[in-house]
Design a protein around this nucleic acid. Structure first.
Lengths: 157, 157
DNA sequence: CGATCATACTTGACGTGTCACATAAATCGG
DNA sequence: CCGATTTATGTGACACGTCAAGTATGATCG
C-alpha cells in the first residue's frame, strides 16, 4: 500500500481554478492572437517567431542549429517550417561555406517587409488581449511564474 | 499621422518578460505534461479532456454539441477527435433518439478504465510541473489572470 | 589511412487543429 | 403542408508538431 498505490493529492478548488484557467487561457488567447496575425499580415505565430528572430541577426541570416536553439524548437520542427516558409518566399536556404553539413537561412526581401508590416499590429494584439488586461503586479507575477516553472523544467531563463 | 499611422506602443522589458515567459512556459510545460500522460497512459491531453468530461456525465454519455460547448472546442475539432478516439475504442457514437440530427457520445468500458488509470498520474504531473512550483499567492494570481483575460475575450468563467 | 562515432540537417508517417464547405433534419412563416 | 432558414454534425484540404529513421559530412583515434 506504499508507493505506486498511494492515493493521489487531488487539486483543491483554488488549484483547479488556476489549472483550468491556464488551459482555457492558452486555448482562447493563442487562437485569438494567431487569428489577428493571420488576418492582418497573412502570417502564423510561428512565421512571426522565425522572421522576427532572423531579422534580429546581422545580415538577416543565421545557421539553422543556432536558430533552433534560440527559438527552443526541435531541429525537425524548424526544418519542416522552413520548408513551408521557403515555398512561400519568406526565407531562403543557403549552404554553409565552411561546413558542408551546415545550412544557413536568410530573410528574403518579402520576408523582411512581411515582418516590418506585421509587427505593429501584432504588438497591439498582444497588448489588447493580454498585457493591457493585466495589472502591473499581474504582469510581474506572470513573469515570475514562468521563471519558476521553466526553472523547474531545467530551462532557467 | 493619426489613426493607422500612429506609432505602436512597444512592450516594456517587464511586459516582454511576461509575454515571452508565457510563450515559453506554454511550449515547454504543455510538451512535458503531454509526454508524461502519453508515456504513463497512452493518452493525449485531448483524449484526457474528452474522457474526463464524459465520465463526469450521468451514464457517461453526452450530446456532441453539449460536449463541444463544455470543452470550448469547435464542433469540427471535436468531430475529428471523436473519429480518432472511436477508432481506438475509447468512445462510441450513438444516434439521438429524439432528434435525428443530434448524436450522442458514450464512454466504452475501455475508455472508462483508461481515464481511471490515467487520472492519478496526470494530477501528479500537473502538480509536479506547475501547481507545486507556485506559491499559493501565485496560484491565486494565475487564476485571476486567466479570469481577467478570458473575461476580456468574452468568455467569462 | 580507415573504421567509427558525432554532428547537422532532412524526411515520412501520423496525430492534431482550422477553415470552408457539405449534408441532413428540424422549424417556421405563409 | 411547403419552401426557406436554422441547427447539428461530418468531411477534405492543408498547416503544424513529434517521433523515429535516414543521409551526409566532419572529427577522432588506432
Amino acid at each position: 500500500m506504499i508507493g505506486v498505490m498511494t492515493e493521489p493529492r487531488w487539486l483543491s478548488p483554488e488549484e483547479m481554478r488556476a489549472w483550468l484557467g491556464y488551459r482555457r487561457l492558452r486555448n482562447l488567447l493563442d487562437a485569438r492572437i494567431a487569428r489577428d496575425l493571420a488576418d492582418q499580415a497573412g502570417l502564423s505565430d510561428q512565421d512571426y517567431d522565425v522572421l522576427s528572430n532572423l531579422s534580429a541577426h546581422e545580415d538577416h541570416r543565421a545557421g539553422i542549429g543556432e536558430l533552433a536553439k534560440e527559438l527552443r524548437w526541435s531541429h525537425s520542427r524548424l526544418s519542416h517550417h522552413l520548408t513551408r516558409m521557403e515555398k512561400r518566399g519568406l526565407v531562403a536556404r543557403e549552404s554553409h561555406p565552411a561546413d558542408a553539413r551546415g545550412a544557413i537561412v536568410t530573410l528574403t526581401s518579402e520576408g523582411r517587409s512581411a515582418i516590418v508590416e506585421a509587427a505593429p499590429g501584432h504588438v497591439a494584439s498582444v497588448r489588447e488581449h493580454l498585457i493591457d488586461v493585466m495589472t502591473p503586479e499581474q504582469v510581474r507575477s506572470l513573469g515570475d511564474i514562468a521563471e519558476a516553472v521553466l526553472g523547474r523544467l531545467g530551462e532557467a531563463r
